[in-house]
């Protein structure tokens, strides 16, 4: 399998605090890789670096053999790296359908003038986007709520919608930032199924998550961060037995 994403010696500091310190790892095509670690370990910072919301101080981020460090978030999204947010960021002034249609922004081309004057190709494009959106709604079991305003829906469903919106952008690499936060155990298991399903369709997934049951269940590989540094990187079974990891999560035996 090819390396889809390579992180090389990535460093980012905020003033005196080094949030991500010389982190390197590789995400191979088609796998689900998780990043775990205690609060403040630098997981979300790492995500913000990959998706372009922060600029790295040092190191490289390479996606499909191209350096993407300097790109703006929308340019990174155009390269088909799509992220979700820890605190759900849905477009609350829109319906579920419109949210998904916005997710399909990159599959359209028509600009301001074409949209204002309803040029024929913009109308054709709009139809395609709508059709595709309904397919995605179907896939995520959201057809019933298509015309509901997203802010009227329960939290768990909002998570799914955000996932569906990210999925609609046809990502090659999907970055999920704590998708199970705030979900109950049933919703989390449902989410696990959905993530697996997305992965089946050859979408590589990088996951930041606190819910260990979910992480161990779906990940192919795990990276452990602590205080901005990489502590371990392995398959789930070995991570569970890694003494260093146990130490940072549970403390030392005779502490």
């Amino acid at each position: 399998m090819n390396n889809l994403l390579e992180i090389k010696n990535l460093t980012k500091s905020f003033g005196g605090l080094i949030a991500v310190n010389n982190v390197s790892f590789v995400v191979r095509e088609g796998i689900i890789k998780s990043i775990i670690g205690p609060n403040g370990a630098g997981k979300t910072t790492l995500f913000n670096l990959i998706s372009g919301f922060y600029k790295s101080d040092d190191g490289e981020i390479i996606f499909k053999n191209q350096k993407i460090n300097k790109l703006k978030p929308f340019q990174i999204a155009k390269k088909k790296i799509i992220r979700t947010f820890q605190n759900i960021k849905l477009f609350s002034n829109m319906t579920v359908l419109e949210n998904i249609m916005t997710g399909l922004h990159l599959s359209g081309k028509s600009g301001f003038i074409a949209s204002m004057f309803k040029f024929p190709n913009s109308l054709i494009e709009e139809k395609k986007i709508k059709k595709k959106s309904f397919e995605i709604l179907e896939k995520f079991n959201l057809t019933k709520v298509a015309n509901e305003n997203v802010s009227n829906l329960p939290f768990g469903q909002q998570r799914i919608i955000e996932l569906a919106r990210a999925y609609s952008s046809e990502p090659e690499l999907l970055l999920l930032d704590e998708p199970a936060a705030g979900l109950n155990i049933y919703e989390t298991m449902e989410l696990a199924e959905i993530i697996k399903q997305i992965n089946n369709n050859k979408t590589t997934i990088l996951l930041v998550e606190h819910d260990m049951a979910l992480v161990m269940k779906i990940s192919n590989e795990i990276v452990v961060l602590n205080s901005g540094q990489k502590i371990a990187e392995d398959i789930p079974e070995k991570i569970q037995k890694n003494p260093e990891v146990i130490k940072i999560y549970l403390g030392e035996e005779n502490a």
Binding site: H105, S115, I129
Partner: peptide, 28 residues
């Protein structure tokens, strides 16, 4: 017409969450 198009959705998206819009590839 503008507001009910691809561009209009992008504009409304910018209104609620610039970050989310940017993350979906919208040049905010």
């Amino acid at each position: 017409n503008l507001i009910n198009s691809r561009i209009g959705r992008a504009l409304r998206a910018i209104h609620t969450s610039e970050d989310a819009a940017e993350a979906l590839g919208i040049n905010t």
